[in-house]
Every structure is written in C-alpha cells, then in structure tokens.
Amino acid sequence: MLTRVLIVAAILAVATVAALWWKRRQGMVREVERAGALSSTTLGAQRGYHATFVQFSTPMCAKCPPTAALLGRIAAEDPRVAHIEIDAAERLDLARELEIMRTPTILVLDGDGVVVSRISGAPSEQQAREALAGVPRTGTDYSI
C-alpha cells in the first residue's frame, strides 16, 4: 500500500512542477533573430505596414479563439498593424519551418516581415502590447 501511495504522490508532485513551469512560460515574449522575411504570399494574407501578429492556431486549441479576439482588437486600433491567424495543422510546412511546437504561438513581424519576437502560449493584453511596442519602426508613417 505504501508503494502505491508513493506512486500517487510522485505523479502529483511531478505534475505540479510541470504545471507551474508551464504556467510561468505562458505568454513569455522572447526576442528572436531570424534572417529573411515572411512575405504576404507565404502567410496567405496581407501583412501590416508597420507590424503584424502572425498567430498559429489549431481547431483543438482552447486558448486560441480568445487570443485571436485580443490580437484582433489590438490590431484594429491601428490601421498599420495586422493580425493573421494561421491553422498550423493545415500549414504544417510553415509550422515546421518556423518550429511552431504549440498553439497559440504568435510571431510578431516588423514592417518588412522580419520576425521580431515570438510569443509561446496565450499572452495577456499587456504582454501582447509590449511585444507590439518592441517592434522597431521601419519606413515612414506617411505614404504618398
């Protein structure tokens, strides 16, 4: 009996550590260096003039729809910012190339389509806004 109690305790302890680690990583914004840019053609949707949130989702992802709503709302505030949602299960080519391991993962692109940062897991509104604020400005604010 003691062995079995210890088995249960060990499983619950490992799960607790795993859950706390996972929660801490949730929405973490990391800088990435990746040469080359993602074009609107590759993404299958029009990139933003100043910045783009590229959100990878799957139909099985519970946190994806609220994240899409959040990023869509932030993008709607600025006409130069776009939000593109991609089904990673359909675009496995992109998921492999960009090493998308989980959903939602959000790549934040600058105006040239270069990945500036990467958000793993659903970000809070503050985390999403900070990631957007971290995009360096390319080009000008006006167009002729």
Partner: peptide, 13 residues
C-alpha cells in the same frame, strides 16, 4: 491545463 490540447499539434506534426 489541458494536456491533450497542448499535445495535438505535436501529434499532428
């Protein structure tokens, strides 16, 4: 924390 939901994409890949 829904483990199955997190694993789905890895499974698909």
């Amino acid at each position: 924390l829904c483990l199955g939901c997190e694993i789905y994409l890895l499974f698909k890949r």
